[in-house]
Simulated assay, not measured.
Amino acid sequence: MYREIATKLVAAIQNGEFKVKLPTEAQLMERYQVSRNTIRKAIDLVYQQGLLRRVQGSGYYITSIQLEHKTVVNLSARSMFTSNLHPRNLVSKVLTFDTIKGDTDLSRQLGIPVDEEMYRVVRLRYWHDQLYCLEKAYYPRSVVPYLSTEAVNSSIWDFIHDAYGIGIANSDDYLSLTNLSAEEALLMGLDHGATYLALDSSNYYKNNGLLDFSHTVFVYPDLALYFHTTNLANN
């Protein structure tokens, strides 16, 4: 229940319903008709995503993570059912959507048996009519038995949550600078060997099973990365 409330709180923040600070716990209990304990656990999830600042004696304030002339990627925002990594309202152009069997290298990278079937999704993603990233993602069919074309063209994470009731429990993320391969350059219409920021992510659900692996190359201009760190010793 508290995860569902957390998802609603994130949506309310993103939609501008809460612009400066969250309502009080009592007000949120009334709004969502849940207990104080549920509200506190939901707020803590949202706080872990870096969307809130805790001010002792005053409550929770909405964190502004926007920078002038920058597009901010929130790398803290994957502790709930779905991934809020990218900006909202991205438009996808699907280049490849098929089922493959993992070879030795890919299976080792994913930590799954060789020849296990998986969905492969390769898509270009656009924001404000400008190329944002190239994304290659793999979903083991042992975890995601069916993935719809509609989901691949919109939000894969929303589909997985709605269809299977699972989502990200934890993630391993690796940021690096990458030189575009000939294939990547061709797909994006950019120069072979040009240097861009890449993110390799392995996402796991609650029993530590692999949910997906993705390789994303960001090409949108003026990107900024946001991390949220909590000093637990001071809480």
Rank of each mutant, 00 (worst) to 15 (best):
M1N: 15
R3H: 04
I5N: 06
I13A: 12
G16F: 12
F18C: 06
K19M: 09
K21E: 09
P23C: 14
T24S: 15
T24V: 09
V34E: 13
V34N: 11
R36V: 05
N37H: 05
T38Q: 11
I39T: 08
I39N: 11
K41S: 08
A42W: 13
D44E: 07
V46A: 15
Y47Q: 02
Q48V: 05
L51W: 14
V55L: 12
Y60M: 15
I62T: 07
S64L: 02
K70Q: 11
V72C: 10
V73A: 08
S76I: 12
A77Q: 06
A77R: 03
R78Y: 01
F81R: 04
S83P: 00
R88E: 07
L90K: 00
V91K: 06
K93F: 00
L95V: 01
F97W: 10
D98G: 12
T99S: 09
G102Q: 06
P113A: 14
D115E: 12
E116I: 09
Y119T: 04
R123M: 09
R123G: 05
L124V: 08
R125Q: 12
Q130L: 00
Q130H: 08
A137M: 09
S148T: 15
S148Y: 14
T149R: 13
E150G: 06
D158I: 01
D158L: 01
F159D: 04
F159G: 02
D162Q: 11
D162Y: 07
D162H: 13
D162K: 10
I168L: 11
I168V: 11
S171P: 00
D172N: 02
L177F: 08
L177T: 06
S181Y: 01
A182G: 06
E183C: 02
E184W: 01
A185I: 08
L187N: 02
M188L: 12
L190R: 01
A194M: 03
T195Y: 06
S201C: 05
S201N: 04
N203A: 15
Y205D: 09
L210S: 09
L211Y: 12
T216V: 11
T216L: 01
T216G: 01
V217D: 08
F218V: 07
Y220F: 15
P221Q: 12
D222G: 06
D222Y: 10
A224K: 05
L225C: 13
T230F: 15
A233I: 03
